[in-house]
């Protein structure tokens, strides 16, 4: 686990050394604005809360987070820097955690830049700011879970496009498992269990202001599990060259 901080710093800076960070942030802010105000009917609802924003966030993340995560390991494998990284005296786990945290911090920056929404809603009315804080924390946890999936999938291939498509698919399954249309496929009891694995179900609860410890544990476990897989995939990646 040593060396994670050097990896974190390098990775975090790398986002801003390329257009990636700026393109991502601009697209994220524009789309979240569009969803909140036009699709979500922010004004029409006449309620001072951020539910229209949070409602569409999982769908935005579904495509944007894999786009951030796809390069994490695929690029290292393609350019040969994986060999460099793995022969520096840093543990593999340190590299996995450092990279993940850097990506997570970056998405946190993007999420943080939606603060004008909070100001707007406070200006227009008196929202439940507790629910808003809870919603933001939930969004951050959900971003982490999407990223964990994306990072692990990225370690399975040298091709960033393949990594993107695969992680969107996996993330999609984790997102929609809570929808009624999916629930209909399962017997009631099973469907309830499946729904527990849905980001959508969890996040909807959180964004209404109910941040349960169980939700935190759920997302933390999920992130840990995918980071563990990430490590395993990297061992395979080394063998594959």
């Amino acid at each position: 686990m040593t060396g994670w901080l050097s990896i974190f710093k390098r990775e975090f800076r790398a986002y801003f050394a390329t257009p990636l960070a700026y393109v991502f942030i601009v697209i994220f802010l524009v789309l979240s604005g569009v969803f909140t105000f036009f699709v979500g009917g922010f004004y029409e609802r006449g309620q001072a809360d951020l539910l229209p924003f949070f409602a569409y966030l999982p769908w935005l993340y579904l495509f944007l987070i894999p786009a951030v995560a796809m390069r994490l390991w695929a690029e290292e494998r393609k350019s040969g820097t994986l060999e460099l990284l793995m022969t520096l005296p840093i543990g593999i786990s340190g590299a996995v955690v450092g990279k993940f945290l850097a990506a997570w911090a970056f998405t946190a920056v993007a999420l943080g830049l939606t603060f004008p929404l909070v100001i707007t809603v406070n200006f227009l009315g008196s929202p439940d700011n507790g629910a808003i804080v809870s919603g933001y924390l939930g969004a951050l946890l959900m971003a982490g879970a999407y990223l964990g999936i994306g990072a692990a999938v990225s370690a399975t291939t040298k091709n960033q496009v393949v990594a993107f498509v695969l992680s969107v698919t996996v993330c999609f399954l984790f997102t929609v498992s809570g929808l009624e249309i999916v629930q209909a496929f399962f017997p009631d009891a099973v469907g309830k269990e499946v729904a527990k694995f849905s980001f959508l179900t969890r996040f909807n609860d959180i964004s209404r202001g109910v941040l349960d410890l169980r939700d935190v544990i759920y997302f933390a476990t999920l992130i840990g599990f995918w980071l563990f897989l990430n490590r395993l995939f990297l061992d395979n990646a080394r063998e594959a060259g």
């Binding site: 050097s6 390098r10 820097t81």
Partner: peptide, 25 residues
Amino acid sequence: YLPEGAPAYGDMTPRGFLTFAAETR
């Protein structure tokens, strides 16, 4: 170690890259 093909992070400068390598050590 100099790996085959001398891989390095293309988006970094030599200064940034070497500083990174030094920190990992």
